[in-house]
Simulated scan of single mutants.
Amino acid sequence: MEREKIVWAALVAIILFLVWKTLKELITPIVFGIAATYIAYPFYVKLGNKVGKKWSLIIVSAIVSLLSILFLIGVALWITDTLKNLYTYLDAFFSWLGTLKVPGALSSLFDAMATSFPEKLRGMLLQYTLSLPKLALQLIVFLAVFYATLANADFLAREVYELLPSTNREISERMLTKVKDTVDAILKTWLFFSVTKGFFLSIGFYVFKLSNAAGSIAAGILCIILELLPFMGGWIMWLIGAMLLWNRSPGVAVLFAIYGFIMISPLPDYTIKPKLTKHRAKVSSVVALVGIFGGIMAFGAVGIILGPIAIGLLFALIEVWKEYETKQPSKAHQSQDA
Rank of each mutant, 00 (worst) to 15 (best):
Y87H: 13
F155D: 06
G300D: 07
K322H: 05
L83A: 11
I186L: 07
K24P: 00
L317K: 06
D154S: 14
K209D: 06
M113P: 13
G215V: 11
A151Y: 07
K278A: 13
S166N: 15
K278D: 12
F93E: 05
F155R: 15
L72R: 02
A242Y: 01
S68Y: 06
T189R: 12
G307V: 01
D81G: 08
L90V: 02
P165H: 03
K46L: 14
T37R: 14
V283I: 11
Q334G: 05
S335P: 04
Y324R: 00
L276P: 00
K53F: 06
I6P: 07
I292G: 00
S285I: 15
I15R: 00
T28F: 08
W190H: 13
T37Y: 12
P29D: 02
Y206M: 10
T115P: 05
L67N: 03
L18A: 14
N152I: 03
E162L: 12
V19F: 08
S335N: 11
T82A: 09
E325V: 00
P118D: 02
L16I: 01
W96Q: 08
R280H: 04
N49H: 15
I171S: 15
D91S: 11
M297H: 12
G300R: 04
L229A: 08
K134S: 07
E173F: 08
K50P: 09
S211Q: 06
L106E: 09
L201K: 05
Y128T: 09
G215E: 03
L244C: 06
Y324I: 03
V45C: 11
F110T: 12
I262N: 11
